[in-house]
């Protein structure tokens, strides 16, 4: 996340027309639906872009965006508006369910020699895939030793994918949710930042994936994490993404995990909900 030490930025908000323009741009490029409730994102996310481009404020960012159609500025604005808040062990409990129940079942069901394959479909700056990597290393070291685990981390944003590849986090980011024992075991301090171990970075394959477009880099998976992303999509887009996960990605008997407050009710009836200790997980209905 961007940190600004200059809270004197006073230019807040943009006009209705500008926000409409931004909404259309974001929707057409990413499928993400911003509504009036997301207007606050303009105030919190665009000032750093303005500073990066040495523009006077967010009004100036919008003028530049309309006038020049500068592709790089466009990408940076979309990145800023759509980047997901994330943290290590976000919501904590889903990860306990995965290690205690889901992954052991996948190991049991997969034919010998078939690696457990997991897709983090909106990996943001990498905290979710690295949480999985640490957790699997702790609970199933033999999977890591025998290279029987593959984590595919994708995101819409090239900047976020680059951050995932670097595996470098600020003190503030590791404070959010990462237990000190895991920090000490898996990270090295480098100045003010912490860098995750190379062998964990090696567990993760990254690529830029727009969920609206084809997913050529996504393999067949046993488990898909699609957490806290669907809230941004229209009902039709949600349905289509969920259909494609069933048809193109999940192996028979595979699992889909959503964010703690998300549900498939009324969106896709072709998944069965399974209660676990702490939360729920979805599996495509057997046909």
């Amino acid at each position: 996340m961007a940190i600004t030490a200059n809270p004197t930025d006073t230019d807040t908000g943009i006009g209705t027309q500008d926000f409409e323009f931004l909404r259309k741009l974001v929707r057409s490029e990413s499928g993400i639906e911003l509504d009036q409730n997301h207007q606050y994102l303009v105030d919190s996310r665009l000032p750093p872009v303005a500073r990066q481009y040495k523009l006077a404020g967010i009004g100036e960012v919008m003028r530049q965006l309309r006038r020049s159609r500068d592709k790089k500025l466009q990408v940076d604005v979309i990145d800023a508006m759509t980047t997901n808040e994330t943290s290590f062990f976000r919501d904590q409990h889903p990860f306990e369910d995965l290690t205690e129940h889901v992954i052991p079942k996948i190991i049991e069901a997969n034919p010998p020699g078939t690696p457990v394959t997991i897709w983090c479909a909106a990996a943001s700056s990498g905290q979710e895939p690295y949480t999985l990597a640490m957790m699997i290393n702790e609970s199933f070291p033999e999977l890591v030793r025998d290279r029987q685990i593959k984590i595919v981390a994708t995101d819409l944003s090239r900047t976020m994918i680059k951050r995932t590849e670097e595996g470098r986090y600020s003190q503030f980011e590791v404070n959010r949710g990462l237990p000190a024992s895991l920090l000490l075991d898996y990270f090295e301090q480098d100045g003010r930042e912490w860098v995750i171990r190379q062998d964990l970075r090696d567990m993760i394959e990254t690529s830029v994936v727009n969920l609206l477009e084809p997913w050529p880099t996504v393999p067949k998976c046993d488990l898909v994490l699609l957490r806290n992303v669907m809230i941004y999509f229209s009902p039709d887009t949600k349905r289509e993404i969920l259909r494609r996960i069933r048809a193109e990605v999940l192996r028979p008997g595979g699992y889909l995990m959503l964010g703690s407050s998300e549900t498939l009710i009324g969106i896709d009836d072709n998944y069965e909900k399974h209660k676990m200790d702490k939360g729920s997980i979805y599996r495509p209905e057997a046909r």
Partner: peptide
């Protein structure tokens, strides 16, 4: 567990929840 200052309610809450 161990947290580095500065902290806020959210960061502390995550740890107490864990």
């Amino acid at each position: 567990d161990y947290l580095v200052k500065p902290v806020d309610a959210e960061v502390i809450g995550d740890r107490l929840s864990a």
